[in-house]
Design a protein around this nucleic acid. Sequence first.
DNA 1: CTTGAAGGACGGATCCCTAGACCTTTTCCT
DNA 2: AGGAAAAGGTCTAGGGATCCGTCCTTCAAG
Lengths: 240, 240
Amino acid sequence: MTGSLEAVFAPVQSQTAFEETVERLGTAIKLGLLTPGTRLPAERELCARLGIARSTLRQALVALGQSGHLHATRGRGGGTFVADPQPPAEPPSAEVLAGWRDVCDSRMTVELGIAVLAAERARQPMVDALEELLVAIDDTLDDFPAYRQIDVRFHVGLAELTGNQHLVKLMTETQGAMSNLIHHIAHPPEVLDNANYQHRRVLAAIRLHDEATAARVMTEHLRGTEYVLAGLLPEPGSAT
Amino acid sequence: MTGSLEAVFAPVQSQTAFEETVERLGTAIKLGLLTPGTRLPAERELCARLGIARSTLRQALVALGQSGHLHATRGRGGGTFVADPQPPAEPPSAEVLAGWRDVCDSRMTVELGIAVLAAERARQPMVDALEELLVAIDDTLDDFPAYRQIDVRFHVGLAELTGNQHLVKLMTETQGAMSNLIHHIAHPPEVLDNANYQHRRVLAAIRLHDEATAARVMTEHLRGTEYVLAGLLPEPGSAT
DNA sequence: CTTGAAGGACGGATCCCTAGACCTTTTCCT
DNA sequence: AGGAAAAGGTCTAGGGATCCGTCCTTCAAG
């Protein structure tokens, strides 16, 4: 029972504003929430929205520029744009790999809760919009990056169905963490096809406000990913 | 669909190490995870564990001392202790009250996912330990602070069943947020008795690795709290 | 009565972040 | 053609949080 105190005395990790900004924008770009060619808000506006000083924002923008995710053009009508050929994703670090089970656990938690809340609150028009994504995704079964981008939009879309901004943010972070893991492993079209079949079943259950079925199918869906990862990634040995 | 970008450009809130330390220790004390009389690790050890400088830790300890949650004694054999008569909890601020639905959503997400994972992974000895908590709790139905303390231990205990430190931390934070809301409202013994009946059913399902039932009963349990809050707290008007 | 372990206090160095002014480039409008 | 406007790019001064090391004070165990 005293084990719970380990969490209380665990290290505090104070992320700086610079780090969090790079993380947020970088994740949004890598997930395809910000597509190539998109123009970011002007620096003076964006720093106000993010609640940070402009020089801090610029540090983040410069960092993302140097890594090839952004490029800026000067002068009136200029701005900061998401770079068109995005740089190739980096392979996951050893520490990310070591914690893959924790990431999956977090994902299970977030996705399951969101599926239930979405089933409770879903409204027709938004469900229809997600339905269209699932139709479009069938054309991408041979192109994993394209598939993954729509996949992310679907899952984030589920979070939006809850009407809770905090959950949208949580889902975005979770998908970012998952992308780090799954971007570099093989995804046969049959697997993606099956995954999308599960997407449809989840969405159908949500449309009917059938929380139990949504939860069950979502669990099944996530287990599929875990099964794939378990076969390809190392077991957590003597991890901390 | 562009709504998801609101989350991307939302303000970054960089919590300082000082603030997070006060939050963590203060929450653990208010939840009863650190009981009155408990001695904290020595400053020189604790700051190492938390990964912060001793002066930063001291700021936090001084703050918690001034608010009456801690007191320190000097000299050999001394230390920093959780104060014995804990200061009365402060009533929730207006902003906490305004966001109560979001807090409940987060709680739903965290508790539901943890219930499912716990059902998947639970081991007998730890389940038995939680069972004892539920027996003890029956003697506290007339004393809400005492009831709540065991209640928190039970829910955090569920998180420990998952074997995932990150989820334990999430649960602790969630319970802290809930306590701010429910500490000042009436809790008739019948309501607490019913809640504990649901505790038993959740734990029984977890013992049998029956994930679906655990999820269903947990949902029911959480809805009960929401129902009580919905009747007593203001509707979210034009909140941001 | 000595020693060791604990809290308490201070000062300098460093880094992050803020705030604001100003420069440079480019395009649009008159 | 020329000026205004809008964007990124640069610089500086300063505040605040944090870290690190050192020293002081207290007090019980041995």
